[in-house]
Amino acid sequence: MTASSIQTLTQRRVLPVGESGSLWMTRPSCGIFEFRGMHLRLEVADPTEVLFPTDCGLSLIDALNEESAPDLEGVNALDIGAGSGLYSVALLAAGAERVTALDINSASTAQTVANVLSNGLDVTRLTCVTSPLEEYTPGEQFDLVITNPPHLPHDPSYARADGLETALVARGGGRAMYNAVIEQMDTLLAPGGTLLMAHSSLADIPRTVQEFTGHGYKCSTLKIFEMDIPLLAYAEHKDTMLGLLKEQRAAGRAEFEGSRFTVHALMFQRPHTASPQR
């Protein structure tokens, strides 16, 4: 399946160029978003430690407002790359029984807890874990996994040891976290469970779809969004990053035009029977 064929599954929502087209109702240090009839508030104390969610991450929230989105009531969910707690807050507000917020960045815990509390949600239903995904061993499987992996290609010239780096940039041409999710999913997701993913067109959507469908997962697209590549934080390295992305595009591993790309809100459903061994 190609990225182009995936795009035909649903109408694309085009966000205008620049900040005026943001999915956020208010932003940037404190944002309010609507989710299933609720107005939820998200704040980031220090954006250098924990990135305030971009439209890439918020796109999945928007897609989950669609009628085709899964029921979240009573689920035991895992939020991979929880960051500021955007998805954890939304899931708990929608009635999730339990949410585990996993992030490699230790600063994520305090920010996620603060945002759960500020929205009047039951923090006893939240568990925060600081660990790389590859080393996480929960001892249980989840009904639902949700994630917005980092998707910009890594380069030593703009590498930085902070929350921005872990949220936006990944090795392997931006695919490192996608690959880790694919590798770990049969361990983390219960048979019949659902994986929700905001997938950037900069990081080879067809490869991810092929990997999952090849192991029996059913893939569907909830919504597609077109928006600006998040280059503001890397303004002085824009040419380097775009150069890497152009290399990825030439190799058939990225799709974008100028500074515009797409984010696909994807839903993967694991079969109830065991998947073939990876």
Rank of each mutant, 00 (worst) to 15 (best):
P28R: 11
C30K: 11
I32N: 07
I32C: 02
F33Q: 02
E34Q: 13
E34N: 09
F35G: 03
R36C: 00
G37A: 06
G37E: 03
H39Q: 15
R41S: 13
E43Q: 09
V44F: 09
V44K: 04
A45C: 00
D46V: 08
T48N: 07
E49T: 09
E49L: 15
F52G: 02
P53I: 01
T54W: 05
T54D: 12
T54R: 13
T54K: 10
D55Y: 02
G57A: 09
L58F: 02
S59L: 10
S59Y: 14
L60I: 03
L60K: 11
L60Y: 07
D62A: 12
D62S: 08
A63E: 04
A63K: 01
E66S: 11
E66Y: 09
E66D: 09
S68M: 10
S68E: 15
A69G: 06
P70S: 08
D71F: 06
D71V: 08
L72E: 03
G81R: 08
A82N: 03
G83F: 01
G83I: 03
S84Q: 05
Y87H: 13
V89A: 12
V89I: 06
A90K: 10
L91I: 09
L92D: 06
A93E: 05
A94L: 02
E97T: 03
E97C: 03
R98V: 01
V99Q: 10
T100Q: 05
A101R: 00
D103G: 04
I104D: 06
N105Y: 09
T109D: 02
T112S: 00
T112K: 03
V113N: 04
N115W: 08
N115T: 12
N115A: 11
L117I: 13
D122M: 06
R125I: 04
R125K: 12
L126C: 10
C128T: 15
S131C: 13
S131R: 06
E135P: 01
Y136K: 00
